[in-house]
Design a protein around this nucleic acid. Structure first.
Length: 773
DNA sequence: CTGTCGGCGTTTTTT
DNA sequence: ACGCCGACAG
């Protein structure tokens, strides 16, 4: 009995046993890719004598990294903890801490998150009086440049691109501000190591030989900077194993480049390619449906998931009038699923954009279904928590002007805009940080005595904290800030409900710090592996703040006993018994951005990404997949700008009707036995999903539809439906909502029925009609 | 200097 | 509908 090799199927074992040289594992959804990575590491360590600290595993999310560590520990025991397992960003942070000197950083450099970046860019744009460039656009350009691993001097702009010029200017100022503050942003965690390696042959020599094996998870989502970093880290040995699924590439907008995985074997000649196609998660219905959607994507590596499992429920489809009804129906169906035995936490509602959560949320509340909205960072994004964090960062790194500006008057110390402006002018003129200036307030002309006193008080608070950092635990440091700045006290004075909640959040931050301290204490003092230097040890507070900054979306463990509501992106890597996919409409999924002009090829690429997103959502489901759409959807609120009628998503049109059961009419109580169908009736549906009796009719349209048409003709032969649908009767199409029969030839002979209808793209739709019997 | 009001842009997706 | 920002009054 070998716990490492025995539990694997043939393809998995091939990947695990692969010796040296590049390995590409194309791992379909639910095919056990984490298992391959973990078991491969275990195999290397246990059977091939590789020291665990010579192995590096990188993932994208903390959750994935955590899971990997856990499973590695199961297989290898404490030895497993010596492997480097982390997210790309955490790896970058660890790298920079070790190479702080070369990078020109302190060992506890602050990490600026999204909001910090935005604040900085806004300030720079305002200061430079740049018009016609929104901070948002500037930041997205800067992000793109950085994702591509560029520096300002390497940017190539078109011949006439004034906003590009402006953004470039902002970028330069941005980098200056960051370096003056000794801070890095999120991208820098990857970029700075990359630049250090490429600049310094000595460093390169050290790091490109440090890891004998490098394994990368979710490789389809790597951006150029990450790709290059991986390449350097595995060095000439090329013992690199990348695992991913091009069909699940959903981060193009963030700079990820699918060709990293598509063309991997071109860049690494001699690559062994292993495909994992056996799926252990989903029923055949779900896999077939997902495949029908994804096979239309351009540029993909052909693969088809299969399962040994028989049975399963067909897909269900909910067609609602508007998003409120959609929420209600999903809530009702979720209740039914729960009643049928699915625990709440095994049910998820997925959607394309966060805005969709509103209607679903309110329906969940109304139906008294316990739920959570899974979104990233929300706690640490609260203003009051960010304030406290800014104090802490400032204490660690007093040069961080951004943090100082944030909290210098929080809570109010009567230090106003004018005073701050004055400080900034002088600091700029002298080329010092704002905090430095605070120790010499006499250098600031025209400062009122009251303001000077307030500033001195602020300075003493921060300086006092700064001096004691090394001896304080994270919790003690947080406590010192909360008390020193009177953050909680002032909130208590306000007394409003909101203030109480904010105070509670701050206490929660304190609790998180305590937990962090305990976790640190609980960890065995890492015995330094031979020949390895230790990581430098920054103050506990620095570690705590780093953890906060790097904590992402997937971190929060899905709480027990609650239905999870989240975006499709957030759902990547998760699985549930029952999944609801909401908003399957043109414009929502695929999402459309009418304001953004894209070239035709960009547009096609975006559409493909939407397709993959849909695929990711569908493959989250183990047993039950319910698709949902609303025929009308409000945007911008109740009487806001507009509501629009929608067309069913083209992805629905890609699904063979045979995959559908009858959706969403789980009427209770069950009605009395259905009356025997009269007339030329076709067959009763078994009603596996519905307790409502109805007649089902399958028919093929007479001709192909063109987009936008709202009616469609069907031919029935007389033994089927002719005359069963007189003019004006309502018809339910299984996939596509309700329609009215517009005309109908009488019974006898062949019948032609014209029905109002939603068309789905140009596809010829095989519709199934239902009608209450 | 602080708090409130009204107008405006906003909605992809997030490590 | 909402949050952000600028304008205005206390």
């Amino acid at each position: 009995m070998d716990p490492i090799l025995d539990p694997l199927n043939d393809a998995q074992r091939e990947a695990v046993l692969h010796g040296d040289g590049p390995l590409l594992v194309l791992a379909g959804a639910g095919s056990g890719k984490t298992r391959v990575i973990v078991h491969r590491v275990a195999h290397l360590v246990r059977h091939r004598g590789v020291a665990p600290w010579h192995v590096l595993c990188v993932t994208f999310t903390n959750k994935a990294a955590g899971e990997m560590k856990e499973r590695l520990a199961e297989l290898l025991g404490p030895e497993g903890e010596q492997a480097w397992v982390s997210t790309f960003h955490a790896f970058g942070a660890r790298f920079l801490r070790r190479e702080a000197q070369a990078a020109g950083l302190s060992q506890s450099f602050p990490i600026y998150d999204d909001g910090d970046q935005m604040g900085l860019v806004k300030r720079l744009i305002a200061e430079a009086r740049i018009d016609g460039l929104t901070p948002r656009e500037a930041l997205s350009r800067i992000d793109r440049w950085k994702n591509d691993g560029l520096r300002p001097s390497l940017v190539k702009l078109g011949s006439y691109d004034p906003r590009g010029e402006a953004a470039l200017a902002v970028w330069k100022g941005y980098e200056r501000a960051l370096s003056r503050a000794g801070a890095v942003d999120f991208n820098d965690l990857l970029l700075r190591p990359l630049q250090l390696l490429e600049k310094d042959p000595h460093l390169m020599a050290r790091w490109s030989t440090r890891f004998r094996y490098v394994l990368v998870d979710e490789f389809q989502d790597t951006n150029p900077a990450q790709y290059r970093l991986v390449k350097h880290l595995c060095g000439a040995r090329r013992n690199v194993c990348v695992v991913g699924d091009d069909d699940q590439a959903i981060y193009r907008w963030r700079g990820a480049d699918v060709s990293n995985i598509l063309d991997f074997d071109r860049d690494y000649p001699g690559t062994r390619v292993v495909k994992l196609e056996q799926n252990y998660r989903s029923s055949r219905f779900i896999l077939d449906a997902a495949h029908a959607v994804i096979e239309k994507a351009a540029r993909r590596r052909e693969k088809k998931l299969w399962t040994e499992r028989e049975g399963g429920a067909p897909l269900a489809l909910l067609v609602s009038d508007d998003e409120h009804q959609e929420g209600e129906r999903i809530a009702r169906a979720a209740t039914a699923a729960h009643a049928a035995g699915a625990p709440w936490e095994e049910i998820a509602v997925l959607y394309r954009v966060n805005a969709q959560s509103r209607s679903i949320e309110s329906a969940m509340r109304a139906a008294r279904i316990p739920y959570v909205i899974v979104r990233g960072q929300s706690f640490y994004e609260r203003a009051e928590v960010k304030d406290a964090a800014a104090y802490l960062r400032l204490a660690l790194e007093p040069r961080s002007d951004l943090d100082l500006l944030r909290v210098v008057n929080r809570p109010s110390r009567k230090i106003g805009e004018k005073t701050v402006e004055r400080l900034q002018e002088v600091a700029q003129a002298r080329g010092t940080s704002l905090f430095e200036l605070l120790s010499d307030l006499s250098a600031v002309p025209g400062l009122k005595p009251a303001a000077a006193r307030a500033l001195a008080g602020f300075r003493d608070l921060v300086a006092g904290l700064h001096a004691r950092l090394a001896e304080l635990s994270a919790a003690e440091a947080v406590k010192a800030v909360l008390e020193g700045a009177e953050l909680i006290e002032r909130l208590r004075l306000e007394g409003t409900d909101e203030a109480v909640e904010r105070a509670e959040n701050l206490l929660e931050l304190l609790a998180a710090a305590r937990e962090f301290d305990e976790a640190q204490a609980g960890q065995a003092p890492a015995e330094p592996p031979p020949g390895e230097e230790d990581d430098p040890v920054p103050p506990p507070l620095a570690r705590f703040l780093e953890q906060i900054a790097l904590l992402g979306e997937a971190d929060a463990p899905t709480p027990e006993g609650r239905v999870a509501l989240m975006t499709l992106h957030a759902a990547k890597g998760l699985e549930f018994d029952a999944v609801f996919l909401a908003g399957l409409e043109e414009g929502t999924l695929p999402h459309e951005r009418p304001w953004k002009d894209e070239t035709p090829s960009e547009k096609a690429a975006s559409l493909d990404e939407e397709r993959r997103l849909c695929y990711v959502g569908m493959t989250r489901a183990r047993h039950r997949l319910t698709l949902s759409l609303a025929r009308r959807r409000m945007s911008y609120g109740e009487n806001g700008p507009s509501f629009r009628s929608t067309e069913p998503s083209r992805f629905l049109g890609d699904l063979p009707p045979a995959l559908f059961g009858l959706a969403g009419r789980a009427a209770s109580p069950p009605p009395p036995a259905a009356p025997a169908p009269r007339g030329p009736v076709i067959r009763r549906h078994p009603g596996a999903l519905s307790t409502e009796p109805h007649i089902e009719l399958e028919a093929e349209p007479l001709e192909e539809r063109t987009p936008g048409e709202r009616s469609i003709d069907y031919a029935f032969d007389q033994t089927e439906g002719g005359g069963a649908f007189p003019r004006g009767s309502r018809v339910r199409h299984t996939g596509f909502g309700e329609g009215l029969v517009l005309s109908s030839d009488g019974p006898g002979g062949d019948a032609k029925v014209t029905v109002s209808f939603f068309t789905v793209g140009e596809k010829r739709v095989l519709a199934r009609f239902l009608r209450p019997a």
